[in-house]
Nucleic acid binder design. Structure first.
Lengths: 211, 211
DNA sequence: CGAAAATTTGACATGACTCAACTGGAGTGG
DNA sequence: CCACTCCAGTTGAGTCATGTCAAATTTTCG
């Protein structure tokens, strides 16, 4: 799974992609755009390596230029719980911990070689000071993340594991090619064994799902 | 439960409370403060009445001056799921729907007579235009809400109903005096019957909890 | 190729749900 | 002020989805 070898990404390409993203949300001058881009670092996170590990105090966030990541947290019983998968043009990081200025609770790991544009807390503070209109973008980012999480929460408490599974593959039809099954189980909030059984039953009952 | 008769609240008192809240997050001039306050409406929502009902397109939010509310959503099977309870100095509203400009998915109901300062989308837009620095406050608001929801999500997927119950009464020791037990069950994501049984078992096993 | 990891399968345990009945207190109207 | 209704809460019996533990099988990858 997730075996794509990272095609090389140039800084110019990455900048262009991020700027497109920002422009669609807020209007900036050329100087402002340049100022912002200077505060981002282009990095390659290799497959299975981490961008953020629980306990980190760096307060970094990143924009995914190309690749796939998973954001998860480890509970007291050492069980992993995937919060979400990050794809191209998504942001990853532990906004909650940045907000509270506490060590990261989340881990962000690359599922394949992944190019990101990351920024530090210092960088974002400079951006917000020099380009106050970026407050708006980050507000919208937080609201959007909130909306996604709220939807996820309701689905978790009101739908069965099977319904959640169907919703996931409907929303990300190729997810099973990108991430391992035990990680999907973790996202769904069930054990890998349960997901395996569930899929077999669904096939037996011809409830679709390709063999 | 929740039988407090609303003590009268004057507009001046409510304004003062909101301004204290805002001042602790962002610096404003007197004109800006006045401009903001003008866009808020002081309202009394009587016990069991609604501030927002699912389907509303008003995109309102409110600051709770005094009282208690519950924010819940109704799933396809007509089951209620409490997302959170709102107390004094909290904001209530469906930020996710405002973000997506879709009808509210949430209901916000007063559990006792409750005074709120509400604002409409138009009001907030005017505020953001005239006082851009308020973007910052709303960004922080969204991030804080996100942090709370993220914690709640992880607790829901990684802790048992009993652990969640203990966490709730630890965080809100007097919650059982404020809201009905079936609403607490709804918050915990279990049925009232299950909560009732759980409490009995905890008492039998002397795991504390007053009789 | 061979070790390690992922997935599948089996047998069994259990927490929470479902449905249904009962209890008790709060509010209402005669 | 009592009778009645209504709703919240409790209790019981049976079911089901998912977890637990353990082992077999397949896939991945060095």
């Amino acid at each position: 799974m997730a075996n794509t070898n990272a095609t090389g990404i140039t800084r110019a390409q990455a900048d262009e992609q991020l700027i497109q993203y920002i422009r669609s949300r807020v209007n900036l001058t050329n100087e402002e755009e340049a100022f912002i881009l200077e505060r981002f670092t282009l990095r390659l996170i290799e497959k299975k390596h981490f961008f953020i590990q629980a306990g980190d105090l760096l307060f970094e966030q990143a924009f995914i230029v190309q690749g796939t990541m998973r954001v998860y947290y480890l509970d007291i019983k050492s069980q992993e719980h995937v919060l979400y998968f990050g794809f191209q043009d998504w942001w990853v990081g532990d906004l909650a911990s940045i907000q509270a200025q506490t060590p990261s609770q989340l881990n962000v790991q690359a599922l394949e070689d992944t190019w990101i544009l990351s920024f530090t807390q210092r960088g974002i503070e400079e951006i917000l000071q020099f380009v106050p209109s970026m407050e708006r973008m980050f507000r919208i980012m937080a609201q959007r993340t909130l909306a996604v999480l709220q939807k996820r929460f309701f689905l978790t408490v009101s739908a069965s594991a099977e319904e959640r599974y169907l919703e996931l593959i409907k929303r990300h039809p190729n997810i099973e090619q990108l991430v391992a099954q035990h990680q999907i189980a973790s996202y769904l909030g069930i054990l890998p064994e349960s997901l395996s059984r569930m899929k077999r039953q669904m096939i037996e009952q011809r409830k679709q799902v390709k063999p």
